[in-house]
Computed example of a mutant assay.
Amino acid sequence: MRILVIDEDNDRSHVLGAALADAGHTIVAAISRNDDVRGSVTRHQPDMIIVDLESPYRDFVEDLMRIHEENPRPVAMFVSRDDPAVVARAIEAGVSIYVAEGLDGALVRSVLRIAMQHYRAYARLNDELERTRTALKERKLLERAKGVLMANKGLSEDEAYKLLRRMAMDQNRKIADVAQTILSVADLLK
């Protein structure tokens, strides 16, 4: 994996870098929390972000939240002390895993695997949610278009659906696109 490391301590950074190299990963950039984190993500396009900080501050966590919204990817955060409020904000910001246990090579490798699996599960759920939203939107369009056809052409619901389907096939378009066209025309004629 290509990894962006955000660290503020050279000793910890060395342990982390060695563990990542032993696991066969590439560090594309190592920056501090005061650097342009969002710009570094855009520039380097890492597969994962690893954050190793004493204590993440609010603005930094908000940067992570914007990264998660704009360009999501797994984030593993190692910190020196456990703070429930920071943990909650970090999880809201899209952090896949938050570790306040210290840092050693075996732990880093294990955390990377867990973070990647959490991120993949999140991405699958997010994709499924988007597909469901799209299907619901298309279903609503289809129902409204059938209603227009039924009212204007005196068709049954089944006949209206068959007409929509035939029009979509004849025009080589999705049925939802044909339904949207019918609704747009109906709105113009009102």
Rank of each mutant, 00 (worst) to 15 (best):
M48Q: 10
R89Q: 11
D7N: 13
Q180R: 15
D36N: 15
P46I: 01
T26K: 02
G102W: 07
L107E: 04
A30G: 11
K140I: 10
K137W: 07
H118C: 10
Y119E: 10
A18C: 00
A21G: 02
E70R: 12
S80A: 08
L163Y: 08
G147V: 08
Y161A: 12
K162V: 06
Q171C: 05
R73M: 14
L142C: 05
P72R: 13
R113N: 02
S32C: 06
H118A: 07
R109G: 08
L107W: 00
A30L: 07
R81E: 14
V5M: 03
N152H: 08
L103M: 05
M77I: 04
R66G: 02
A179S: 13
R66V: 10
D35E: 14
V87W: 11
V185S: 00
K146V: 03
A176R: 01
L183Q: 12
E8S: 09
R166W: 07
T181S: 12
Q45F: 03
M169Q: 13
R144V: 01
M65F: 13
N34L: 09
T134P: 02
R2V: 00
E8T: 09
V15P: 05
A18F: 07
R113Q: 06
E101R: 15
A100M: 05
G24N: 02
Y98I: 10
E159T: 03
Y161M: 12
M77N: 08
A123D: 14
A179H: 12
T181C: 05
I114N: 04
D104R: 03
R89M: 13
A176K: 06
V51C: 14
A115V: 11
I67A: 13
D36F: 00
R139G: 12
M1S: 14
D158P: 03
E157Q: 14
L125Y: 10
I175T: 15
V111H: 03
V95K: 14
R81V: 09
E70L: 10
L4A: 10
S80Q: 13
E92P: 01
I6P: 03
A76S: 05
A121G: 06
V75E: 08
D7Q: 07
E128L: 13
A85F: 01
N152S: 13
V41A: 06
L112R: 03
S55M: 08
L20C: 00
K146Y: 01
D59H: 11
K174N: 13
L189N: 08
V185T: 06
L64V: 09
P56F: 11
A100K: 13
K174F: 08
M150G: 12
D83K: 06
G24I: 04
L20E: 04
S184G: 09
L163A: 09
I49V: 15
T181F: 07
L107H: 05
G17M: 07
L125E: 12
Q117D: 11
A76H: 11
G94A: 11
A160N: 01
E138D: 15
G105L: 01
L107A: 04
D7V: 03
D83H: 02
S184C: 02
R133W: 11
R33Q: 14
M150E: 15
A115L: 05
E130I: 07
I49W: 03
